[in-house]
Design a protein around this nucleic acid. Structure first.
Lengths: 207, 207
DNA sequence: GATGTTCTGAACTGAGCGGTTCAAATTTAT
DNA sequence: ATAAATTTGAACCGCTCAGTTCAGAACATC
């Protein structure tokens, strides 16, 4: 049989550890997560865990980095640069709101904010593999649309940031601060349509 | 001499305790703040502290509530409902960005997010005495402007939320996630002017 | 099935923290 | 001055948690 792809990981349980840590850290944050809990969740002995990661902080850093990479990979959507810009924006808005509404999106944001002071490196990585990356994608699409003459924009990155921001209207704050059932699909749709309408009103070229 | 205003507080050191707790909680968050630290910061013995607040959580709740009230009081600015709406919005935007950029604004947001899961009541109070309140103020101003025929808006609260959101473009994320020197006054001005321009393009009535 | 590696489980250390206690000291009120 | 209320400091309890240790079991490899 063909040799299985031998990864650089030293032992069998490496991935289990990372997976378990991911769950617990995302659930409880860095401080409240206990190493014993992580070991239990990972189905691994504490000794094994410490064989791989001699320090809780290192384990957290590794997890957070992995999550950021995963997040960036998930954002790898193919944007059709030839579609009408309003459609492209609507699609982007749908992805942004969906991410915010997802369990994963909320948890990672919370953890990133909470630990941004103790782990500034992680905060930066999150920023670049999340908001900044999205902004860049939108900017690319806008650049195409400007060339096609659909929109007139002087500061493209800024306009992209404005649009991304408009997608969060009322959703982000309520998700974080208000109790659970706070964003109906209708709300989301209104935010998305509102964002597109506002953006086109500002930058759209009258036909 | 006239009797000093006797507050309902039982002892002399009550305010000291609250003040010290405020500082430490805002610096370290709930979990990382130690009661011994708070007592030291307040210049008060641990026994005294526990005489007033028999529980760390109660102390935190009291502090957070007080901060929310303070925050709401600070927002008590007089909006001239007869001024042109663009000017009103510009002023509101300046206040919003100034708050975000302030040390206080950043700390309270961070703490609110961090503790929103363990203290949902606090999170809600923060939301209502902060973002929600601001949104309400803007909505009022918009209502006047609609009556004057300066703008045409169907969903006023939503439009207010949109504007408030536009004031945070790129600032909020960078303040939280990126290292310190990240927002020049020029950046801020661009965000404010960009928000007003966009809002007026969408809702302004052509003269 | 022998050998070397990885994993286990459970006990242990040491430190920090929330919360308590109390006799003595200080402040305030009468 | 005296009595009552408040504050102090320091020791103390019980608990949790990060990190260590190690003899032996499970596993992989040849």
């Amino acid at each position: 049989m063909g040799a299985k792809p031998q990864l650089i990981v030293k032992g069998r349980k490496f991935d289990q550890v990372l997976e378990g840590a991911r769950n617990v850290f995302m659930r409880d944050g860095f401080e409240r997560a206990s190493v014993d809990d992580i070991a239990r969740e990972a189905g691994v002995s504490k000794a094994t865990l410490y064989a791989y990661f001699p320090d809780k902080r290192l384990l957290f850093l590794e997890c957070a980095s992995a999550e950021c990479r995963r997040q960036a990979a998930d954002a790898e959507s193919h944007i059709d640069p030839n579609a009408p810009i309003a459609d492209v924006l609507r699609l982007a808005a749908e992805r942004i709101t969906a991410f915010m509404l997802s369990e994963f999106g909320q948890r990672i944001y919370r953890v990133a904010v909470s630990e941004s002071e103790n782990f500034p490196a992680i905060a930066q990585e999150f920023y670049h593999s999340g908001p900044k990356l999205v902004q860049g994608r939108i900017a690319e699409a806008l650049r195409c649309a400007v060339e096609r003459g659909e929109v007139a924009i002087d500061d493209i990155p800024f306009a992209a940031a404005q649009f991304a921001q408009l997608c969060k209207v009322d959703i982000q704050d309520r998700l974080i601060f208000a109790p659970a059932p706070c964003c109906t699909p209708q709300d989301t749709t209104r935010v998305i349509e509102g964002a597109v309408a506002m953006f086109m009103a500002r930058y759209g070229v009258k036909v």
